[in-house]
Each structure stands twice: as structure tokens, then as C-alpha cells.
């Protein structure tokens, strides 16, 4: 993500400024603005940022050292963090979120890439298909969750109906009610929503690949398997990794879908850190906002560290030049 900051522009045009020295005071350097002008442009954004993002974030971290019940604040030092360390539910939530965040993006990105390749291979109605496959991205998690709760319904859901129709009725089960399948079921739903997003991004990247290289491979009678493995995937690597990181961030935060579909159950099988924070803060009648603040603070650190780490790992690999 940080490479996006490169095309920021100000540095690129530095020579232009130097050659265009101001002739009079009145036509001053257009790259500079007086302090009040900068304030007018920047203060609203900064006020919103500091008031509604930075201050609440710091306050959450500060609050994590207290027990807060209503108006009452009791400083407890690191007690919340110690309790968190021993909280089994928290660790289950961490495990589930990590499984989701590290494994599921592979599913998303791979599906997206394969769909993009199918469209690139020149199937008829490619324009329509691209639009159709993208539709789930626009639906809200509430809508997607309700739809898939019906799809997974034990008595009349599509999945079980299909299994019974194929004579595999034994496999029919309450997909969201069974601790063994609940997490996978929710992950599949999440992938259903996001595959189209990855498809569009991959397709755009494939179209921007240099034609000569792909045409040369055709002259060399290079099969699709080989082309995919030795050319397309390596050349798309920056895009694919970028998509992986985006998906990863999204999944570290996942809340809506899980909350509506399973509420974190059954037996904590789909509990994620987000749903657990929500439960501790607003749902269970524990009335303490200090402990969930501690969870949020820890998770904030974990997400930031993971994103920085992923960027470092992916950056260190040389980009393929073409």
C-alpha cells in the first residue's frame, strides 16, 4: 500500500517550479500558499480526523487501563491485559480471525484471477459476465448474510436441497449450526461477496500487461498452463499481493457478516475478535467498557503490525520488470 504514496506528485514536478521563478511579488510561486489558505483547506479535514479518529483511538487505549462502569472509572493498571491473556474465548476468536485473514484471501484472489482469465480468454458475453459477477460486491453484508442464512437453511436451503437431490442427504446438515462447518460456511459466503472485486482488479491488470510478451509466448506455442505459471502470475504478482493485503485487512476487521449469520456461535466456532469486542462492550450485560477497550487496543496493534509486516515481506521480493 505504501507504494501508492509514490505518485504523490509534489516531488515529480519540482524542476518545473525551479525554472518558473516568480517575476514579481504579485505572481508568487504557485506551488506555495499562505498559511491562512492552507488552514482553510486543511483544518476541516484535520479537525474531523483528530476529533473523531485520533482522539477516540487514544481514548480507547487510555481507557484500557480502567474499569469503566457508567460514570465510574477505576484505574486498574494492566489488569485488563492480564485478564485478556488468560481469556480463552479471546484466543479462540484470535485463532478464527487468523485462519480467516490468512487463508481466505488466497481463496478470494485465486477465484478472482481464474474468473478474470476466463473472461480474458474471450468467452462470449464477457461484458455482461463481468457486470454480473461484480454484483455481490455492491450488496450490504446484511443482505448477503440473510440470503446465505436461507441458502444454508437445514430444511429448505439450496445446499441441503441439492445434496438431497443428488442422493447425498446424509451430508445435509445445519451448516451454520454445526461447529465443524460454521466457520467454513461463513468464509464461503464472504468469498462469494468479494470474488467479483478481485476479478475486476485482476482483469484490469491483465489488460495492462504488455501485449508483445503474451504474443511472443503464443508464437512459442506456450500452453495456457505454462503461460499462467511462468508469465501471467509472475507479471501480475504486484497486483495479486496488493489484493491479498487488501483482503487481509478486510478480514481482520470482519464483523457484520458473522454477527448477523451466527453471532459468533455455535460454541464460539465463528467468534472473531470484532464480534467479541462488540459482545463485551455492548451485548453482554457486563457494563464494563475498559476490558473491551483493551481487546481493541491489542487488536489495533496486531493489525498494524501485520500490515506493516506483510508489506515488508512483499516489498523485499523484487518486482518483475517488463
Amino acid at each position: 500500500m505504501s507504494d501508492m504514496a509514490k505518485h504523490a506528485g509534489t516531488d515529480v514536478e519540482a524542476p518545473a517550479r525551479a525554472s518558473r521563478a516568480p517575476r514579481t511579488r504579485r505572481f508568487s510561486d504557485p506551488r506555495r500558499a499562505s498559511f491562512p489558505v492552507l488552514l482553510v483547506f486543511l483544518v476541516p479535514a484535520l479537525a474531523i480526523y483528530f476529533g473523531l479518529t485520533a482522539y477516540p483511538a487514544f481514548r480507547t487505549i487510555y481507557d484500557s487501563f480502567f474499569t469503566i462502569e457508567g460514570m465510574e472509572r477505576i484505574p486498574v493498571g494492566f489488569a485488563n491485559y492480564v485478564a485478556l491473556w488468560q481469556d480463552e474465548t479471546f484466543w479462540v476468536a484470535v485463532r478464527n480471525t487468523f485462519i480467516w485473514a490468512f487463508v481466505a484471501p488466497i481463496l478470494d484472489v485465486a477465484t478472482g484471477l481464474l474468473l478474470a482469465l476466463a473472461l480474458y480468454a474471450g468467452v462470449p458475453f464477457a461484458r455482461f459476465l463481468r457486470i454480473a459477477w461484480f454484483t455481490p460486491v455492491l450488496l450490504s453484508y446484511v443482505v448477503v448474510a440473510i440470503l446465505w442464512m436461507w441458502i444454508y437453511n437445514y430444511d429448505w436451503g439450496v445446499v441441503n436441497e441439492l445434496l438431497r437431490a443428488m442422493g447425498l442427504g446424509d451430508l445435509a446438515r445445519s451448516w451454520l449450526g454445526d461447529p465443524n462447518t460454521a466457520l467454513a460456511a461463513v468464509i464461503v459466503t464472504h468469498a462469494w461477496k468479494w470474488a467479483g472485486f478481485n476479478m475486476v482488479v485482476c482483469l484490469a491488470a491483465i489488460h495492462s500487461l504488455p501485449r508483445e510478451v503474451l504474443e511472443a509466448s503464443e508464437l512459442d506455442n506456450c500452453g495456457w498452463g505454462a503461460k499462467l505459471r511462468y508469465m501471467i502470475v509472475p507479471m501480475l504478482k504486484p497486483t495479486l499481493l496488493n489484493l491479498y493485503v487488501l483482503a487481509f485487512i478486510g478480514k481482520m476487521k470482519v464483523f457484520d457478516l458473522v454477527w448477523i449469520m451466527t453471532g459468533g456461535g455455535p460454541l464460539w466456532a465463528t467468534e472473531t475478535v470484532s464480534t467479541y469486542v462488540y459482545k463485551r462492550a455492548f451485548n453482554w450485560n457486563t457494563f464494563d467498557l475498559g476490558y473491551p477497550s483493551a481487546i481493541a487496543a491489542v487488536w489495533f496493534g496486531v493489525v498494524c503490525a501485520a500490515v506493516i509486516l506483510l508489506n515488508k515481506i512483499f516489498k523485499s521480493k523484487d518486482r518483475l520488470e517488463y
Binding site: 477516540p56 464483523f255 470484532s274 477497550s293 489495533f300 493489525v303
Partner: peptide, 9 residues
């Protein structure tokens, strides 16, 4: 930022 970091505050 995960949303929880600002949510409670």
C-alpha cells in the same frame, strides 16, 4: 485501523 479502536470511545 480496525473499527473497534474508535468504536467504544
Amino acid at each position: 485501523f480496525p473499527p473497534q479502536i474508535t468504536l467504544i470511545s
